[in-house]
Design a protein around this nucleic acid. Sequence first.
DNA 1: CGGGGTTCCTGGCCGC
DNA 2: TGCGGCCAGGAACCCC
Length: 271
Amino acid sequence: MPELPEVETIRRQLDPVVRGRSVVAAGGHPSDRFAAAGTVVGVRLGPIRRRGKYLIVPTDDARELIVHLGMTGVLGVTDDPDAPDAPQRRFTRAWWLLDDARTLTFDDQRRFGRVAVVPRGCYGDLPTLAALGPEPLGPDFTARAFHRALARHRAPVKATLLTQRVVAGVGNIYADEALWRARINPVARRVGPGRAARLRDAIVAVLSEAIDHGGTRLRDYRTPAGDTGAHQWHLDCYGRAGEACPRCGTVLRARRVAGRGTTWCPRCQAR
DNA sequence: CGGGGTTCCTGGCCGC
DNA sequence: TGCGGCCAGGAACCCC
């Protein structure tokens, strides 16, 4: 899916479209992953927030519209009033007609995404959001707190990052990139204070740089404007197994960690 | 409660 | 060309 930098890019693009608009009509795919989209008809939408990979839109009736893009989710805006019913939009899982005649659409081929509507701040139905770690670009993500949080887990450090509990918004791509930059093996089960500080700095740097470039384009990723993102952010490690490590020249290797494809440098990131 | 595996979907790609 | 198997940026859920 889009990870934090892609979700933040989408948030910035959609906020001026959505903020202050009222929802005239809405609908969702009948599955319970999307059906809640239709429950926000007649409400006015507030400024879009982001927590980790979740987009959160407050409504003026004290609820929140929450969108998670899953692996293949794409949010878009169209002027076509028939958009949700058009045959070429067979992957449109949710839509909201706004009071300026524009329609916000949520397409999601694999249906791993989700739309939820909850009373403000009530995240019991979204356990990952409820237990989400600190924002990596916020003041709470300190080296000290990060080290303490990591020390509570015994799983491979990459698996721990992917849980979202120690830091919010890091997915498979940026986990590999940050671990490579910090020279930490993805299956290390203990990370001392020095390496935790390095990993913290690498996460902040990698995510910040990716946001500055408007996110990383990968496969089907599209911006809300429909383009593929002209400024592909340069990936040093993720997806480059078999190529030379950009730092030391050793051939990057691939394995599975926590069920996810993982690339690392056996020399820079030795155990 | 933490950790590890499975599952929810669709489609692209690779090898036979 | 056709088809099976594998893989894909996530997280909820189940069991131990």
